[in-house]
């Protein structure tokens, strides 16, 4: 098993003598060769990802009403409207809350189960496979399944609670404004934790077994081994999972869209669902575009800040 390495190419840091020749070598064919190899990726990415993003920036300065409609340049009008919109800022807050829930629920469950399964030998593959199954379900279907589980009158949860004599615990999982975002996030995290779990399992396999032996010789108990060997050994995976979970969390859309459509009364509205409804239902494409840009800026800020933090941590 190869050891985990940091982001930077290890060869960049080491190999001082040989590099000079390679550098010269690289300089000769560097950009040209790289460009040719990257060309398909650049072309597709530019056409189907960057162009729409650029068009979005243009739309944000117009009063576009959607496909085929006449759009006039309105300057920063949409941006001004965004500052006054009563829905945007609370839903931005909820987007962060959603992100936090996803990292804690999906990331946490993934880690916990990886630690539990990592110790098994005969049943490991079984549990690993079984626990990954929810990740194979599409988010739209997850929404349909969980909406039924949460049904206040006929759902799995409330029916079970009532039958066990815990009727007082039965809740309006999707109607209580304080619960709804959490409830939907549980459904989304049920689908999402499997990948994180596999990554953590993989990380555990990469921890050097002799470290445990050394700890055992020092008389460490299970908890101390977890704290002093396992968790530090997983730090690399953890940052990876964290960044992946943040990106997935920020993109959260399908489960909210299917299960609550942002309701009741905006209680589960996050930026993406609001963008969708602004564009498709209200036909307010200008404001929707402003929100897209806001989201992109947010995503970039988080990614860059996270990478900086990660680089500082590992150096």
């Amino acid at each position: 098993m190869t050891r985990l390495t940091t982001t930077a190419d290890p060869a960049d840091l080491r190999a001082p003598a040989a590099t000079r020749r390679r550098r010269a070598d690289g300089a000769r064919d560097g950009f040209g060769a790289a460009f040719v190899l990257m060309l398909p990726a650049i072309a597709l990415y530019a056409l189907f990802s960057l162009t729409p993003i650029l068009l979005t920036i243009w739309i944000s300065f117009t009063n576009s009403g959607g496909f085929n409609t006449e759009a006039n340049f309105v300057g920063f009008d949409n941006y001004l409207r965004a500052t006054e919109d009563p829905i945007i800022w609370p839903s931005l807050g909820r987007t962060f809350l959603w992100l936090f829930y996803h990292v804690v629920l999906a990331g946490g469950l993934g880690l916990a189960l990886a630690l539990a399964i990592g110790r098994l030998s005969r049943t490991r593959v079984f549990f690993r496979t079984a626990f990954f199954l929810p990740h194979l379900v599409s988010l739209a279907v997850v929404g349909v399944i969980w909406a039924n589980i949460y049904d206040p009158f006929y759902g799995l949860i409330n029916t079970a609670l009532t039958q066990w004599g815990l009727a007082g615990w039965a809740k309006g999982w999707l109607s209580d404004p304080l619960l709804v975002l959490f409830s939907v996030n549980v459904a989304s995290s049920w689908q999402g934790f499997g990948l994180y779990m596999l990554l953590f399992i993989a990380g555990l396999q990469n921890i050097d077994g002799t470290l445990y032996e050394a700890a055992e010789i020092d008389g460490a108990n299970a908890l101390q081994k977890l704290w002093n060997v396992t968790l530090p050994g997983l730090s690399e995976v953890m940052t990876f999972v964290l960044s992946l979970a943040m990106i997935n969390g920020l993109k959260g859309f399908a489960t909210v869209f299917v299960m609550t459509n942002g309701g009741p009364f905006y209680a589960s509205e996050i930026i993406t669902t609001y963008i969708y409804r602004l564009a498709f239902q209200a036909q307010d494409h200008g404001l929707a575009a402003v929100l897209c840009i806001l989201m992109s800026v947010l995503a970039i800020t988080i990614t860059v800040a996270f990478n900086r933090w990660r680089a500082r941590k590992s150096s």
Binding site: A147, S175, F265
Partner: peptide, 10 residues
């Protein structure tokens, strides 16, 4: 109040 979380089918 729990009806706020129901859809037409439910």
């Amino acid at each position: 109040a729990q009806m706020a979380g129901l859809d037409l089918e439910a």
